[in-house]
Design a protein around this nucleic acid. Structure first.
Length: 224
DNA sequence: CCAGACGTTGTT
DNA sequence: GTCTGG
DNA sequence: CCAGACGTTGTT
DNA sequence: GTCTGG
């Protein structure tokens, strides 16, 4: 699963990496990105621009927007059949830029781990977005992150992981085709991934500092 | 027909 | 909006 | 994902 | 236990 990630780069780095415009007034690096926050997204409708979307997809037909609290992830295997995601899966795909993400090992103590790609420092999750209008007609843009089976690096910690796209796959995911490019949605194996234990400071979303992604020392091996 | 749900994770 | 269950 | 709340009344 | 908010 994926319920917390980082995007710890400056605006110009994102701009260079994705060839997009970004308003420096609305952007700031994020070490501890959490559900319900407004976070940077590149959608298929605005491929040349990064905008902020709320994490937790609110389907366009929702009466109560709090449904978004439950829709922070969508299973890639079933999203095209689910009422909440079907429409977005066909027409409203997006990239969620990231520099790494967190998972908590449930066995024994609740230990947070940080996962990242040393060869691809900025990557993206495959996402879906939607637009919901409140009673006054104000639009709320929101997104969810697709999940899939864990890859070999992750499976000791968790049996699910976010769908990570390679740079080549990013273009395909954003193409305006109602045929879903489902071959992109498996666990990432083609790019090396690393992990290390991090401080439980990351548990609180308000702790948004570089410290939450730093490796913590453990008895025995320094790196896991 | 209307009412109510619409999700994922992990654990049992 | 669309599907399921009563 | 985790943390924190989870209620009503009346009064200031 | 379950929901809301970040």
């Amino acid at each position: 699963m994926c319920g917390r990630f980082s995007l710890s780069v400056e605006d110009f780095e994102l701009k260079d990496r994705f060839q997009v415009e970004i308003d420096p007034k609305i952007y700031q690096p994020c070490y501890n990105c959490a559900p319900s926050q407004r976070l940077p997204v590149i959608s298929n409708h605005k491929k040349q621009k990064i905008d902020l979307y709320r994490w937790g997809l609110i389907p366009f037909w929702a009466k109560d927007p709090s449904i978004g609290n439950k829709l922070i992830n969508a299973r890639a295997e079933t999203a095209s059949e689910k009422p909440s995601f079907r429409h977005a899966m066909q027409r409203q795909r997006c990239l969620v830029p990231s520099t790494g993400f967190f998972e908590w090992n449930k066995k024994g103590e609740k230990q947070p781990w940080y996962f990242y790609l040393p060869d691809v420092p900025i990557f993206s999750f495959a996402g879906l977005w939607d637009v919901w209008k409140d009673a006054e007609g104000h639009s709320v843009l929101s997104f969810t992150i697709l999940t899939t089976r864990a890859n070999s690096t992750m499976q000791d910690i968790h049996h699910r992981m976010p769908v990570i796209l390679t740079p080549d796959q990013e273009k395909i995911w954003l193409e305006d085709s109602e045929e879903i490019p489902s071959d992109l949605l498996g666990p990432l194996e083609s790019i090396p991934m690393r992990k290390h234990k991090v401080s439980t400071l990351v548990n609180k979303p308000e702790n948004n500092s570089p410290e939450v992604i730093e490796p913590i020392k453990t008895t025995g091996t320094l790196f896991d």
